[in-house]
C-alpha cells in the first residue's frame, strides 16, 4: 500500500519562492531532470522541490503506518492459520514500507521524529481512505486487494520520478505490493465464491468501500490545480484522472468477473474515448473527511498518539549522550 495522490497537491501558497532561486542552478536542475537523471540528496535542488517531496514522501510514509491499523485489527481475527499468518506478513510489509519511506524523506532533512510529531498534531496528512472503518473481515480484504491495487498504479508511475531515494524505495515497495495484490485477490475471490454468508459479507464490504476507492486518486483534474510544475519536475508523474482511469480499466472487469457488483449505475467504459464514465464522487465529503471530520480520523490519530506517548521512554532510553542523530544515506 498505500500512497495515493489524494493528499499531495500543492497548497495555493506554496508556489511562491521560485523567483528567489538562482536561475542558472535552476536551469541546470531542470535540464538534468529532462535528461532523465535522478536528483540525489546532496545535489542542489529548489526549496520548493525539497519541500514538496518531503511532504509527499512523508505523507506516503504516514499512509503506510496509519493504513496498517484498519488491516491490523483483523490480524487477531483472521480466520484460520493460513489467513492469520498471511495477514500478519502483509501488514508487517506495510510498516516496513513506512520505515523505508521515512528514511527516504529524512534524506531531505526532516527527521522521522519530526514527521511523526506532525502526523499526530494533524499538521501532515495521510491517504484519506484510512479514515473509513473496516467493520468486517471482508473490508480488510477489499483494502488488501483494491486499495493496494490503486497504490500500485500510483507508485509504479512515481517510481519513474526524479528523486533517487524515493524512486529506489518505491521499486522495493512495488515488488512487495505485487504479492499483496495476489493475496488480496485470493482473499476476495475466496469470499466472493464462498458460502452465502461469505458472499454477502464481500458484496457489502465492496459497496461500502467503492465511494472511497473512487476518491483514492484525488480530485478530478478539472478541480486540481498547480500540478504543472510538479509534473515538469517529475515529482508527480501521472494526473489523478489518468491514474483513476487506468485503475478502473484494470480492475472493474476483474470485479465483475467474480460475480460482484459495483454500486454505481453509471459506471461504464466509453469504448470510443477509452475513458470510464461514472457518477462524480462527492468531493465535498472528501474535503470534509480529509480535513478531519471523517468516521475514523480521531481514532486513527489517537492510536498513533498513544503509541508515540507510550513508547517515548524507549526512545529517550536509546538517546544516550553518545548517540547523535545521523541522516540516513540515500
Amino acid at each position: 500500500m498505500y500512497g495515493s495522490a489524494s493528499t499531495h497537491d500543492l497548497p495555493t501558497t506554496a508556489l511562491t519562492g521560485l523567483e528567489n532561486e538562482d536561475p542558472i542552478l535552476l536551469a541546470e536542475f531542470e535540464a538534468r531532470i529532462n535528461r532523465g537523471e535522478k536528483i540525489e540528496p546532496g545535489d542542489w535542488m529548489p526549496a520548493l522541490y525539497r519541500k514538496q517531496l518531503t511532504r509527499m514522501i512523508e505523507q506516503h510514509a504516514h499512509s503506510e503506518i496509519i493504513g496498517s491499523l484498519p488491516e491490523g485489527t483483523w490480524i487477531t481475527r483472521a480466520p484460520g492459520f493460513r489467513r492469520k499468518m498471511a495477514q500478519m506478513a502483509k501488514v508487517q510489509d506495510e510498516v516496513g514500507h513506512a520505515q523505508l519511506l521515512y528514511s527516504a524523506a529524512e534524506t531531505l532533512g526532516k527527521t522521522r521524529e519530526e514527521m511523526l510529531t506532525d502526523l499526530i498534531n494533524g499538521k501532515s496528512k495521510y491517504s484519506n481512505v484510512f479514515n473509513y472503518p473496516t467493520p468486517t473481515w471482508a473490508d480488510s480484504n477489499v483494502i488488501s486487494w483494491l486499495i493496494d491495487a490503486g497504490a500500485i498504479v500510483n507508485q509504479l508511475a512515481n517510481a519513474k520520478g526524479s528523486y533517487g531515494p524515493y524512486c529506489r524505495a518505491l521499486d522495493r515497495i512495488c515488488a512487495e505490493e505485487a504479492f499483496h495484490l495476489k493475496y488480496g485477490h485470493d482473499a476476495v475471490v475466496h469470499l466472493a465464491t464462498g458460502t452465502p454468508i461469505q458472499r454477502k459479507m464481500m458484496q457489502e464490504a465492496l459497496n461500502r468501500w467503492w465511494p472511497a476507492i473512487m476518491t483514492f486518486f484525488g480530485p478530478s483534474d478539472k478541480m486540481s490545480v498547480h500540478t504543472e510544475i510538479l509534473m515538469r519536475w517529475k515529482v508527480k508523474m501521472a494526473s489523478n484522472d489518468e491514474c483513476r482511469n487506468q485503475f478502473l480499466d484494470m480492475y472493474v472487469p476483474k470485479i465483475w468477473e467474480i460475480g460482484l457488483t459495483l454500486p454505481d449505475a453509471n459506471l461504464r467504459k466509453n469504448e470510443e474515448t477509452g475513458q470510464w464514465e461514472f457518477t462524480e464522487p462527492d468531493w465535498e465529503d472528501f474535503k470534509r473527511v480529509i480535513n478531519g471530520d471523517g468516521p475514523c480520523n480521531a481514532e486513527r490519530i489517537a492510536v498513533r498518539r498513544a503509541a508515540e506517548e507510550n513508547g517515548a521512554w524507549v526512545r529517550r532510553a536509546l538517546l544516550t549522550p553518545k548517540t547523535q542523530y545521523v541522516r540516513p544515506l540515500a
Binding site: 496498517s68 501488514v91 508487517q92 492510536v303 503509541a307 513508547g311 526512545r315
Partner: peptide, 19 residues
C-alpha cells in the same frame, strides 16, 4: 505479539514483534 502492530515504541519493534 501480533497485537504490537501499529503500537511499537519504534517502527523497527513493530516489525520485529511481527516477525
Amino acid at each position: 505479539n501480533s497485537e504490537w502492530n501499529g503500537l511499537g515504541p519504534i517502527l523497527e519493534e513493530d516489525i520485529a514483534f511481527s516477525s
